[in-house]
Each structure stands twice: as C-alpha cells, then as structure tokens.
Design a protein around this nucleic acid. Structure first.
Lengths: 137, 137
DNA sequence: CAGAATCCAAGGCGATACTG
DNA sequence: CAGTATCGCCTTGGATTCTG
C-alpha cells in the first residue's frame, strides 16, 4: 500500500494497468495502523488519553458502554503499538495509570484532523446515505 | 464521541469524572466514518480513485488479492457515503466507471495526512511491538 | 463485463464469572 | 482496583457459483 501512489502515477502516465500485487498487503503500514485505529473503541481511547492520563477505572466510568474486556484489550493493543504506556502503582489495592506517549501524541495530532473532518462533514455523509438508500428502492 | 473533547476539558477543570454516556455512540460521526475507513480495502480504494477514475475490472486487476465480493461491497459502501460515484456506460458488454466525488477528495485530503504518518512512523510502531512482545515473555 | 447469491471460516465484540 | 478466563453471538471477509 505504501507505494501505491507512485505506482499509480506511473501507470496513468504510460496508460497501462498497474500491478499492486508486488506490495506486501499483509505488512502494509497503512492497513496495519488503520485496522487498529478503526476498532470500535480505539479513537475514543486516544481522544481521552490525549488530554491527560487516566486510570483504568476512570476510563471505565467515562465510557459506560464499553465492556471491561474490550477496555483491557484496546488499551493493550494501543500500548503494544507504542501509543500509550502503562504504569502500575503498588498501592493497596493497586492502581494503574495509562498515559499517552510522544508517539501517541504524534499520531493523535494527525488523527485529530481526520476526526474534525468527520464531525464537520457528518451531515453531508448522512445526506448522501439518505439519497443512496431512497434511490435504491 | 463528537463532544468528548469539550466534556473532557470541562471535567478536568472541575476535577470530576465525566459522563460520556450522554453521547449517542451509535450515531457518533467519528465512529461512523472510522469504521468504514477502517475496513480492509477502503483506504486502498480511496487511494486509487483519488488519482483518476477506474472501471470495475481495472480495480480488480490492480488489486488481485481482493475478492470480487469485497470489491463490490467496498465500492457500494463508499458510494453510499458519497465519497465516490458510479457511472454506467450502456455499451455491450456494459462497463462501469467509478470516480471520486468532491466530498471524497475532501476526505482524502485529510486522510492522506494520516496515511503518510503511518508510512513515516511504521518503523517506530514495529519497534514498539517487538519490545512489547519480547517483554511479555 | 460487472455484478448478485450463497455458503463458510475467522475474528471482533459482549456478558458473565472469577482472581491477586 | 484492575484485571483474566470462558463462552457465544454477530459481523467481516473469502470462495464459489450463477446471471443480464
């Protein structure tokens, strides 16, 4: 995927179909990230943690609809990719704090632009859907 | 999701937990878009069609790994949201061309920034994963 | 050529119960 | 408090076959 732009440009100039099969789709950086970010709760977590660190329970209360299973898993995945980090305080009972890393803030800086776009253009998208669905009758 | 920023800011200033449950997560503009864009083939389609229009068969040949079922479905979904439009030429046999709309170009302008981020930071993410996975032993 | 229909496998996600 | 373990549903996506 990462080289698709270049390949497509070349192809259109020589007016011939492109072979994107040379790209390793399974190791595609773009899909690699998008599939993670596209998860049901990922952006919400990133949005929250971009403001300040939160503890597990705080996040849980902030987002009542999330199951604790998905909260744990989403946090793990984001931590694995280096977007957030986990700090355990050996209190009794223990408390755990999640905070966004520099890499996470870097990502969110760009991601936020897309989120803003979604909010600003939501009406246009909804309108397009209504048109499409009613025309489909 | 759309009001999370504001709510979180308020909450941190008054130092109290936020109730995000008032937000309609099922009608969240951000998730609405991200779930679509996060699909396995969506960004690839948008990237291709951001260059120039393509016909169904051209896209099919450009991306050999995609099943025709998913090609159809991805194009339908993108069309439904108003990002691309479909034009049928009544030739024999018929041919169908897909082209990006203004809304689609608008989206892709912002989305491309995120895709670039993914490519530029892929190594950092991969490194983070290796660290996480090896530490997990 | 550009699909529609059907069937099937894998994974995402939720609900519940249990633990250090 | 902050998880883990299990189960099961539902959605996503792939393979195959059929059509205008």
């Amino acid at each position: 995927m990462s080289g698709a732009v270049v390949n497509l440009k070349k192809a259109s100039s020589v007016r011939r179909d492109v072979d994107l099969s040379s790209l390793d789709f399974n190791n595609c950086p773009v899909r690699d990230m998008m599939q993670q970010i596209g998860g049901k709760w990922s952006t919400l977590m990133l949005e929250a943690l971009s403001k300040r660190p939160y503890r597990f329970g705080e996040l849980r209360r902030m987002i009542p609809d999330i199951s604790q299973r998905m909260l744990t898993q989403t946090l793990r995945d984001l931590q694995r990719d280096g977007y957030i980090e986990r700090e355990v305080f050996p209190t009794k009972p223990p408390s755990v704090e999640y905070r966004m890393t520099d890499l996470g803030h870097s990502l969110y800086g760009t991601l936020a632009l897309l989120l803003n776009w979604a909010e600003e253009n939501h009406d246009l998208v909804r309108a397009a859907r209504l048109r499409f669905d009613s025309a489909g009758v």
